[in-house]
Design a protein around this nucleic acid. Structure first.
Lengths: 343, 343
DNA sequence: CTCCTGCGCTTGATCGTTCCAAGGGAGCAT
DNA sequence: ATGCTCCCTTGGAACGATCAAGCGCAGGAG
């Protein structure tokens, strides 16, 4: 059937238009787009020329309706994050958009309410607006994972299921302990023997994991960690206070911190006391935020391989959405150390 | 027609299911969702209960197909931006997601190639995947605006059409000149009389705009600007060099910079010379990036009202997508000054 | 010569929603 | 009782793609 004459010319062309121009049926055009192998070579060329000539691109809504897939990945923007988390998240989102784009997926952002961690998921799921979710805040026993699994919603988590060893959903995470161990070893190799730790409160799984790496490195060299660790809130102010206390009481020559925020606090304390970061006392942060790159004299920091994380997540998503689904084991990636003036 | 028995129970309910349960027709359910006024009160209640009971949510793909609208807004992620631009962009994206969510729209991110500024737009447009675009990099004569207008694609620009006074598309921008004028006045009020400018190369419209505000403030007080301005690349290193030269040759007591990046360079120079930022020499940056908030002693910076920008953009989009479209004039918002220790 | 097989393409049905034009019931006046 | 509104409701069609059969033709085996 041909288009109704007089129709507004800005309407995009449809499969039927292409079919008519190429002198084939709709299905043949569809095959030319999705299963080119099924066509005879000369027919394929003819259809492709018609597609080119009309500037045809399949209507997403129609395709989504028929195939029950949207090729969209939902990602929740968490309101009011801490700045280091934000910095990392920004880099992660960039990578995710690029990687998923190469795999034929787009990223759909939606807002979360600070109070209800499930807000937004439900509607997108029931309206089949997205094929899958990427969940980024699985720490501290957030209920998203269990909730999504219960509804059989495909999702991949950025973050281990700390509190649930039984969890069977795919996940990708960065080995924080390996990162802090790397940091501590770097300092040990430079001759430091009294290396302090400033981390988060004990109820943070991530914090305890990162602390474990520091501890492991020291113990591997037969050094004691006692009196060298402090656990505080993730603010500059806390980092500043904690480092002041540690300097007075334990006289460390270096600090490893659970975040760049805390490390900035240490730098402030050093400046207060006329100590030079990197010369008199070494400092290493975590996340390689923009601040770490800009501050004097440059903050050495553990850098998460977020590009690889995004790539692995997209890979897991593709498996999850395949027929039949392939679900692999969780993946743990190793961070690197961005060495700068502070160490 | 009722659902086929034996169908997989995880299939989401459809309009027909709700209709059957409520004892009405499909259209009545559709009206209950989209035009509740058309229903008798008791019928409406019955339908709403059925919707609630089944957990029904309209299938997005089917709705999109029928109404030729996706309720998605396309936003391109620009690869490898400078960090200040990134910082601002992150805050902007957050606001945009929240505001557009309230208006019933979601944000679709797509990747741009560094080389082709139009990559990605074309396909999303032709496949009717998004209703409209938000374009964020209209400076420097990027061709998106003209290209999109030519295809009658609805879009709102964050940024003025600097190079095209004839442009009729809706836009929202921040008055950079007002920001730097605010900064300069703040310094003048503190008694500074020799206030230097470090900005970008002359071919940047935004840079020249910001420079104009500084210049205007000085001239309003009868002060000369000659010898006090420098135009360089937007890097810390350039800011550092430029400020060193200015200090030697023009002896300013304060700096206003076109970006936080440049301001960081100034802070480095001050530290090199044992000068205290805020005490000996005042420094003001632009963008209120995370770095400005964290660095010692806190960098005073011009803060763009990105929440308002997002809100106005969504407002403009709603007008653009209404029937008939309402397209208002461009909107210029005034930034504020985040005062910290450096001034 | 007939039958079967497989390739390449066409045809009708379907996904779940909204639009359209017509159907139907209650209420009121005649 | 009949006719006429006025609303609300109804079935059919359409949006544009893919799925599942089906059809004609060529070539080989029986």
């Amino acid at each position: 059937m041909s288009r109704i004459p007089g129709r507004v010319p800005t309407q995009p062309p449809t499969l039927a238009d292409v079919a008519e121009l190429a002198g084939v049926s709709r299905q043949t055009v569809s095959n030319a787009v999705n299963n080119p192998d099924l066509l005879r070579a000369d027919t394929l060329v003819r259809v492709q020329e018609a597609i080119e000539q009309l500037g045809y691109s399949p209507n997403r809504a129609a395709r989504n309706l028929r195939t029950r897939a949207s090729h969209l990945i939902g990602l929740r923007m968490n309101p009011g994050q801490e700045f280091t988390a934000n910095a990392a998240m920004d880099r992660f989102v960039h990578s995710l958009v690029e990687t998923s784009g190469e795999a034929g997926y787009h990223v759909l952002l939606f807002a979360g309410s600070g109070t209800d961690p499930l807000a937004g998921y439900d509607d997108l799921l029931r309206s089949t607006a997205v094929d899958a979710f990427v969940v980024t805040d699985t720490y501290l026993g957030n209920p998203q994972a269990a909730w999504l699994r219960e509804r059989r919603a495909p999702f991949v988590a950025f973050g281990r299921p700390w509190d649930d060893a039984e969890a069977t959903h795919p996940w990708v995470d960065v080995d924080g302990a390996a990162g802090t161990e790397l940091a501590a070893r770097h300092l040990l190799d430079k001759g430091h023997e009294r290396i302090a730790w400033i981390g988060w409160r004990k109820d943070s799984w991530i914090g305890e994991d990162r602390r474990a790496g520091w501890s492991r490195a020291l113990k591997a060299r037969g050094l004691s960690t006692s009196g060298l660790a402090s656990r505080v809130e993730d603010t500059i102010h806390s980092g500043r206070e904690a480092s002041a206390v540690l300097l007075d009481e334990a006289h460390p020559s270096a600090f490893v911190c659970a975040s760049d925020t805390l490390a900035m606090g240490v730098l402030h304390t050093l400046a207060d006391r006329g100590l030079r970061a990197g010369q008199d006392v070494a400092v290493i942060g975590f996340d390689d935020s923009q601040v770490a790159q800009v501050v004097r004299p440059g903050l050495t920091s553990v850098r998460q391989p977020l590009e690889d994380v995004a790539s692995q997540i997209v890979n897991a998503l593709e498996g999850l959405l395949a027929h039949p689904p392939r679900v692999g084991p969780g993946i743990l990636l190793t961070p690197t150390l961005a060495v700068r003036g502070s160490s």
